[in-house]
Design a protein around this nucleic acid. Structure first.
Lengths: 197, 197
DNA sequence: GTCTATAAGTCGATAGAC
DNA sequence: GTCTATCGACTTATAGAC
């Protein structure tokens, strides 16, 4: 067996860090920062409780790293929205399906916790505040206006329509998956009726 | 000052218990069972931490009492639905506004916690299971069928339409109030478009 | 690198003063 | 009836064996 060089060791370490983050996101998203014990994350990742601290120096640090990742993912999802093809309705539909996907849902639940709980580290709050929800949402305004001009969407203040749409999507994202086994993706067409006249 | 008789003393005690429950519902709903410290409830109720235990012998007992109340309230809200006046659409609209009311939202968030967390007392789980969500929801089926027959609602499996409606409402109920200041009540008419053709 | 054992701190619950 | 002080259990984070 050839000994591993520094680069390979670093890579191995990064892989383990990713393994811990993946386990932690699942548990933090469902149970919150305080409701999650380091032992739960360790168990989910298949390692001992003490070992976690060789990769993240504290529970808070791990939580903050996850929040950072989640915000970057979310910002990317909104940015990608501007580049989508098709009619306004088709764009919103694709965006909606993307948002309701499981991995996005966990990230979103984490961010929601940071925004609503006052027991998360200040550093986590600061990260989330760097990407104001309003500016994220406002990236969608042009598509809504276009949808109204083309007669695909109902008339009225586009900001209000956008806000209602976003509230509904946010609510669905917070729903524990499989509430009574509804396949939400299957119903996206029905959901889109909120936007139409 | 006339000394109070037994009945009056009991009544005073009950009032204090209600005061504690009201404070506890607010905190439990937002932070969950584990995320809530008895000291938070005591502070919200304006009493000392130790005094809470003169009225509820444990944090779990207090939580269970709240779950019991919440389930009874919820069951009542669904039962009242059958007695409402007006067209199917008007009934659903009234029901929706009722559900999105703050006091109902907190009860619903509590029940959702019992259903999704596995760290709540068994007794709480048992109470919630006594009122199966499915049977609660199914009380609305006749109205949906009627709405479809009258052409007010979109065609297709009424159970699926009902499920979509209920998922959306559930999601909105779980939303921390005032997410970016949307007045949801004001948008109920738009929401109802999900049901229409 | 990974685990087990333990020290320090936190919170639920109780005891005892007023 | 209410509060303050404290005990015991549990959790985070570290120390030390392998």
């Amino acid at each position: 067996m050839t000994p591993l060089n520094d680069h390979q060791l670093d890579q191995l370490r990064d892989e383990r860090k990713e393994q811990i983050k993946k386990a932690a996101l699942k548990v933090f998203a469902c149970r919150g920062l305080i409701g999650t014990k380091m032992s739960m994350i360790a168990q989910e990742a298949g390692i001992s409780q003490g070992l976690s601290y060789r990769y993240y120096s504290s529970k808070d640090e791990l939580f903050i790293a996850l929040v950072q990742d989640a915000m970057e993912e979310t910002a990317k999802a909104f940015a990608a929205f501007g580049l989508m093809k098709g009619s306004p309705l088709e764009k919103i539909k694709e965006f909606t399906i993307n948002m309701l996907d499981e991995s996005n849902r966990h990230s979103f639940m984490l961010i929601q916790q940071v925004q609503t709980s006052d027991e998360v580290p200040d550093k986590a709050k600061n990260i989330v505040q760097q990407y104001p929800t309003s500016s994220l949402i406002e990236q969608m305004t042009p598509i809504f206006k276009e949808g109204q001009e083309k007669g695909e969407f109902s008339k009225g203040d586009p900001a209000e329509l956008l806000m209602l749409y976003f509230s509904v999507i946010s609510g669905l994202m917070l729903l524990p998956h499989g509430l009574d086994g509804v396949n939400l993706i299957h119903h996206v067409d029905n959901l889109m009726k909120i936007l139409k006249e």
